[in-house]
Design a protein around this nucleic acid. Structure first.
Lengths: 95, 95
DNA sequence: ACTGGCTTGTCAAATTTTGTCAAATGTAGG
DNA sequence: CCTACATTTGACAAAATTTGACAAGCCAGT
């Protein structure tokens, strides 16, 4: 199961691009992109979109992974009730 | 489908307790409990536990609703990809 | 040892969240 | 209509979290 950061890193490496190049495109520090790829920091929605564009990736795919990461970090702290809570959230989603 | 706030309100009213009494027990302002019941503010984990105790409710039930609320508010901003992201998060949960 | 790419730790600034207060609104009885 | 009490609302300061930059460090390849 792949995270947003892992996916971004893979896309970037497939195109032999440097962190520096991605960073320049987003106008942020290289260190920040490094952290995003390693999952140490979350990207903002706008950053995800910009990355998708630069890496010629499907924006929706990356936004999906980005949201999945957020859900994961929400539930990971409550393993006891996570499954049941997910079920409830799913039901609400279907409306 | 019931939210944490709605559930708390129901429990409180069934026992004819006032917001003030719940607030006193948690040592917070009445306004805050009002906001929590109406979903305008999120309760903290510790507050949920204290409320469960005071209202003689099942702590796990309330924590489940509390987490479901958090998940819901995470996904509600991304309806386009919410469903798919939930699927991914679910898979990760099963590990 | 030098270079280039990446990582790490720390920090201040920006943003978000939290709880309180005071005022407003609602509600029921006299 | 008053009054008393419960709840809601909006504004605000304080607290907590997040954000991104910077500088120093690490690690290969040469």
């Amino acid at each position: 199961m792949t995270n947003l950061g892992q996916r971004i890193r893979k896309l970037r490496e497939q195109q032999s691009l440097l962190l520096r190049q991605v960073a320049a495109h987003l106008e942020v520090d290289t260190a920040l992109i490094s952290k995003i790829e390693r999952g140490e920091r979350n990207a903002s929605r706008q950053q995800v979109i910009a990355i998708a564009k630069f890496l010629k990736a499907d924006e929706e795919e990356l936004l999906t992974l980005w949201l999945a990461d957020k859900i994961e970090s929400t539930i990971v702290e409550e393993p006891e009730v996570a499954y049941q809570a997910m079920k409830i959230a799913n039901k609400k989603l279907k409306k």
